[in-house]
Amino acid sequence: MSVLSFVEVSEGKIKKASVEAAYYGSKVAEGLGTDSVALVLGEASNDELASLGAVGVKKVLHVADAKLNNFDAKAYAKAVSEAAAAASANVVVLSFNQNGKLLAPRVAVRLNAGYVPGAVALPEFNGGTAVVKKNVFSGKASANYQLATENKVIAVNPNSLSPVRGTGTATVEALSLSVEVTTTVKAVNKVTGTIPLTEAELVVSGGRGLKGPENWWMVENLATELGAATACSRAVADVDWRPHHEHVGQTGLTIRPNLYIAVGVSGAIQHLAGVNGSKVIVVINTDPEAPFFKAADYGIVGDAFEVMPKLIEEVKKLKAH
């Protein structure tokens, strides 16, 4: 028996979200007294794969087939299920990231497994039944999902646990599977030079309170000082002050950074839906009654045009130490 985690590699590097999934898998394996095994599809260096040992993975099954370098939902689902059989795994852990959101339910169907989409905590086992917490109603509540099936599939919400790294290295074992790839990648368009919003640990976000796009230097400078990504409210994207891919909330991106700083954002429920999973929320707003203060950990009631330049200076000072 074992726990299998599915790990994605992009441009030769293991994705952050996948490291979390592998760590989660190792913790589950530890709890069950079995081995943590990871599966990697497509080309990757042995050193990179062995590094998964740091998060508790004993063995990496590597299907080093170049055909699998790009995501193909159907082929990947087949590969993950077959690898689960090869590793005698009855718990499969994936990231609830872009690919995982589609892959995990497919794997669950193949394995006749109960499935938790977006786990935010480790499972509690009671005999053969696992109970796993996940957020529902856009973060307004959580639910305990119960899996009593023999096979279980868990997709872990990105940024819901911080992997503790040890010193282990994993052994890498080649696995060969026959899969047919029918998704042809024609182009990849990555926003370069900036930190992808969904991967960012720190995010600085601006709303209509900033009055116009010419004032975004405040958000950008603070983000640069912190090494943060930038985001915005929908109201701001709708009037083209900022690009739509920066808009967070119910109709935009859902993010769960360690720190979310909202400047001149009122905190409408649809906005909160995308950010209330953040570990720490800081709100800067002139209106003490702004709803965002109710969802915040720290707040400053004040004018962004006064507060932000000071905040940028103070962060600079901190970073200079």
């Binding site: 109960g114 709100v283 109710k294």
Partner: peptide
């Protein structure tokens, strides 16, 4: 077949208590 069930729901404890920092003391926030 029923493969997944929801055992129960949990509402967030209560609204978070925000810690307010004076606008003239931004260093304290940092």
């Amino acid at each position: 077949p029923k493969l997944t069930t929801i055992a129960n729901y949990v509402l967030p404890e209560k609204a978070k208590e925000v810690k307010l920092i004076d606008k003239d003391n931004v260093a304290e926030l940092v």
